[in-house]
Design a protein around this nucleic acid. Sequence first.
DNA 1: CACAAGATTCCG
DNA 2: GGAATCTTGTGC
Length: 188
Amino acid sequence: MYNIFMSKVINKNFFRENTVNTAQNLLGMVLCRRIEKGKILRGKIVETEAYTQEEPSCHAYRGKTKRNAPMFEAGGISYVYFTYGMHFCLNIVTENKDYGSAVLIRAIEPLNDFCTNTNGPAKLCKALNITKDLNAINVCSNKSPLWIEFGDKVEDKNIIKKSRIGINQATELKWRFYIKNNKFVSKP
DNA sequence: CACAAGATTCCG
DNA sequence: GGAATCTTGTGC
């Protein structure tokens, strides 16, 4: 079982492989956020989506721009983008440099009393105070304001695979993954 | 330089 | 179902 006193930060190699696999491997892992006052907020990742440059719903599909540049870096950093004039969303960049790909973190299960309302990509950013300041930072070090620790890996039989939310293209891909029966998933 | 769209959320 | 709200990318 996951225990914060025994926790280990996930290393870069975890993110430098296939994005669809990594999106599933991230389920059960623990998102950690150091906020002011030295407090750390933690949440178990319960819902993710994979995005790669080969399919048109991905921000990286039309090539590198100022906005999506972090997606083209080597895996293990954040990609935070702003949308709808009011929301931030958090991704973890995957694979190798010059290949545009990332995993969108869509929901976490709070492990602290302090963080609530985390069942959606923009909601969890608000709960953890994740903004553009945290874009393109290393998430493989607990010296960062944001990092990821090993948790309890979710067995394949407990992973639900569905179409991604909020996109109009490549809807045939079942690249949205979430933990079966988890209450904090954004949309069952 | 103008304009449309957006990996969402909340309200009615 | 529709508004909120503003950054970014694209095209003229």
